[in-house]
Design a protein around this nucleic acid. Structure first.
Length: 125
DNA sequence: GCCCTGACTCTCA
DNA sequence: CTGAGAGCCAGGG
């Protein structure tokens, strides 16, 4: 059974996604599709955006959710250039030394490649 | 249950 | 590299 608190209404899949996002190391980025896989939700990249939009700003279980480390498969920020969200995300990434040229990030350099230990640990939890 | 939406992705021109 | 088109699927109304 699931706990019955004010948060029980939260979709279970969202929680899986938030937890996966929390594993992204500082200074690295991953794509929506990649998070979907890590969260055990292959093929549901679009669900990631929904989950991030509703992610509690206070974080989840005492840990912040670094939503800004998620970009699209082309290495670009998925907000319209110049929009509020775009500027926030770009700023936060740059604060972590991630180089953002225009609206693009060099994935060959900044994309997180979870190692086997990481994957096994996740399956266990 | 039906219909629309979207912080996606892949393919092809 | 850029853009259009189709496929994708859970959420929300």
């Amino acid at each position: 059974m699931v706990a019955k608190t004010g948060l029980e209404a939260i979709k279970p899949n969202y929680v899986k996604i938030w937890r996966a996002v929390q594993k992204i190391p500082l200074g690295k980025v991953v794509s929506y599709g990649q998070i979907a896989d890590l969260a055990g939700l292959p093929g549901r990249a679009r669900l990631i955006s929904k989950a991030l939009r509703q992610a509690p700003k206070t974080g989840w279980q005492g840990q912040q959710i670094p939503w800004y480390r998620v970009v699209n498969s082309q290495g670009k920020i998925s907000f319209p250039v110049g929009s509020d969200g775009f500027n926030r995300q770009k700023q936060l990434l740059q604060d972590e030394q991630v180089v953002v040229i225009g609206n693009k990030i060099r994935l060959s350099e900044y994309q997180w490649q979870p190692d086997l230990i990481e994957l096994l640990f996740h399956l266990d939890s």
